[in-house]
């Protein structure tokens, strides 16, 4: 469930989603230059908090906990998960609420300003899905 991305060669847009926060929130700002309006984008970081704190997310967490079979992977002896070198049972790569929040944002990102151009319709989460497929193949 891990990715190592080397943005180097073509600087292809495959990595763009991952570094949006840098391109939009970091970098030099010079007050004599105007800044392009970023309607819909400046909400990026705010959106995360809204999504994470939403009722839906709480319900999702509750249901996810209910579904967990703690006994199946050693019951309560889990505090040392980190020390014990990770539990191997958790191969479920299903997207959880955390990733879900990220996707909601990436969708709002692509909806925010791509309404007039097909090439930009490719939603970020489609790409992420492809990349998680790639990850699974690797395993």
């Amino acid at each position: 469930m891990t990715v190592m991305q080397q943005t180097g060669g073509g600087g292809g847009s495959g990595d763009l989603y991952e570094i949006l926060d840098l391109i939009l929130d970091k970098g030099l700002v010079i007050d004599v230059f105007a800044r392009v309006s970023l309607v819909g984008i400046e909400l990026l970081t705010v959106d995360v908090r809204i999504v994470v704190a939403s009722v839906d997310t709480y319900l999702r967490f509750a249901e996810a906990c209910n579904r967990l079979d703690l006994a199946a992977s050693g019951g309560a002896g889990l505090p040392d998960l980190l020390d014990s070198g990770m539990e191997k049972g958790s191969r479920s790569k299903s997207k959880g609420a955390l990733t879900g929040a990220a996707e909601a944002i990436s969708e709002s990102f692509s909806k925010g300003r791509d309404e007039d151009r097909d090439e930009e319709k490719q939603p970020a989460h489609a790409r992420r899905r492809t990349s998680s497929k790639r990850k699974e193949e690797k395993e």
Binding site: F61, A64, C65, L68, L70, G77, L78, P79, L81, E87
Partner: peptide
């Protein structure tokens, strides 16, 4: 997510 949930419940 699942691993993190297991940790906090544990």
């Amino acid at each position: 997510e699942e691993a993190a949930l297991r940790t906090v419940l544990g």
